[in-house]
Amino acid sequence: MTGAGLPRWAWLPFALAMALLVIPLAGLLARAPWARLGELLASDRSRDALLLSLATCAASTVICLILGVPTALVLARARGQWVAAARTLLTVPMVLPPVVAGLALLTTLGRRGLLGQPLAVLGVEIGFTTAAVVVAQTFVALPFLVVSLEGALRTAGTDMERAAARLGASPSYVLARVTVPLVAPAILSGTALSFARALGEFGATLTFAGSLQGVTRTLPLEIYLLRESDTDLALALAIVLLGVSALVVAAAARLGRTHG
């Protein structure tokens, strides 16, 4: 046993938690059509769903980074009553049931929505496009990046930042040369988390974007659809989804460690 502070009884809940989380995944792996995996994944609809998922998740993760890093900085550094309120508002999409997120987007950006109606007049219609998928994924994934990064920003770096500022560095220079390198592990793991969350997005995409092969039908939607008609292909795609998620999360943990 390692670590002086580890009480012996903690192993029991640990074992139960691992069993609860790992056994269903093992069950999925056991049922997977391994022998036909290559053939199943070579089909058009598998490829379309996988490529669409990867492309939209990459896009939404980039947007999450562009918007999320400065947002986390504001939440961590700004002072005032409103900061707590803003933090709560930003966290809500994280715990919102996916279908509610979809309805929220539909009533806002839909053709008859608050913003969607004026946009439609200008000829911009988001519904049923790949852009709608990216919007839905960003909506649910952005809070993960902001929340994980804000925590790191609050505990790291204020002394060094102050020192750099006293030496005459501008706030943007301090951000780029001091703050970002300090919280790089948190940025990486937050990015991975939001990518993984975007990859698993289902409800908001279904409610808001629709489902058309190669346009809006991402991996989770395709898995849900195939679950009834072609269980083997659904399981094969589930394995791919599981694999990509595991890869992303593991890579982030590793990168986070080496930078830390």
Binding site: G110, F128, S211
Partner: peptide, 18 residues
């Protein structure tokens, strides 16, 4: 423009004017 997974999803998109 979309091939929904459930008939209620079709109805929802028409009822909302989407």
């Amino acid at each position: 423009v979309s091939e929904e997974l459930k008939v209620t999803d079709v109805l929802g998109k028409v009822a909302s004017g989407e």
